Simulated scan of single mutants.
Amino acid sequence: MTGAVELRGVTKRYGAAEAVRDVSFTLASGAVALVGHNGAGKTTLMKLMLGLIRANAGSVQVLGENPAAGEFAARRRLGYLPENVSFNGALTGRETLSFYARLKRAPETASLRLLERVGLGEASHRRVGTYSKGMRQRLGLAQALIGEPEVLLLDEPTTGLDPALRLAFYDIVRELAGRGATVLLSSHALSELEDRADRVIIMDRGRMAASGSLEELRRVARLPVRIRIRPGSEAPVLLAGLATARRLPCGALEVEVADHRKVAVLRALLCAGSPPEDIDVLSPTLDDLYAHFLRDREPAA
């Protein structure tokens, strides 16, 4: 299998510390969530893909090239947003984006239109030094999008963005992925990524703990499904025999059942003489899966 990004047995050490240990994966088109705690190796992986650092072992290929090679022509087809953006405060937003467009040899007119797209049109002639943290983050996002990159690496991209701009940001991600780009999103905001990533890679202390679509990870984890109801008169009786049944502060009842039993439980509830007023079926979230795959990790050496 080939993809825009391919890692094979990659290890990166800093002295005696292993930031990344024997990691292998292939990224094709679509949106991929890279999740893990601080120090899990997410930023190190991105730096390896950008060619900013070299692996001690294994191979890294991005758009068919070794990014650590002296001449990495594919860099112009990459977009990168670091976790902490930093720009020359004396330049305006427009001057900053023009500078990066020239570096990537991308059309300036099209690049400057990105300022409108990230909500900086009216502030484009202001000096970056007057921008708020959220505005600088938006400028960083515009910079990463210059040239319609084929591979887009985004490290904590929605930090400092208000809810409306977060939605607009994910619209951009969906559009790029729909055109065939590979978008890698590293974030601690797991709930944001849950319905927006085609695939999830979970990192744990430099190792890849799990990888797959949300449904694939749910099948592997085999976590229970939660059924939440506003009960009719017979529902409490039906649920009483289930050890996990509990009443929530809002008055609803919640029960955990194995995924293969949820249909039987729902059928029993709906066919009761007094069916529930409302039912919600809650599958394990990305937060639940993340906690599961890290719960049984072996102690650090």
Rank of each mutant, 00 (worst) to 15 (best):
T159V: 13
S187H: 04
E192W: 09
R174Y: 00
L176D: 01
E192V: 08
L165M: 15
G180F: 11
I172T: 13
R166V: 14
I172R: 05
T159Q: 10
G180Q: 14
R166C: 11
L176I: 03
L167K: 13
L190C: 14
E194N: 03
A197V: 12
L165N: 14
R179L: 04
R174T: 07
Y170N: 07
T182K: 01
L184V: 15
A168W: 00
L161K: 01
L165Q: 15
V183C: 12
S191F: 03
A197R: 08
L165D: 10
P157E: 04
L185F: 04
L165H: 14
L190N: 12
A177Y: 02
A164I: 07
S187I: 09
I172A: 11
A197Q: 08
L185H: 03
E156W: 03
A164G: 10
E194L: 01
H188A: 11
L184H: 01
D171W: 00
A197Y: 03
D195L: 08
R196S: 04
V173C: 06
R174E: 08
E194F: 01
V183D: 10
S191A: 15
S187T: 15
S191G: 07
E156P: 11
L190W: 07
L167F: 08
G178Q: 10
D155R: 00
D162V: 04
H188N: 11
I172H: 10
T158F: 11
F169H: 02
P163G: 09
E156N: 05
E192H: 11
A168L: 07
E192S: 09
T182Y: 08
V173W: 05
A181R: 00
P163L: 02
E156K: 01
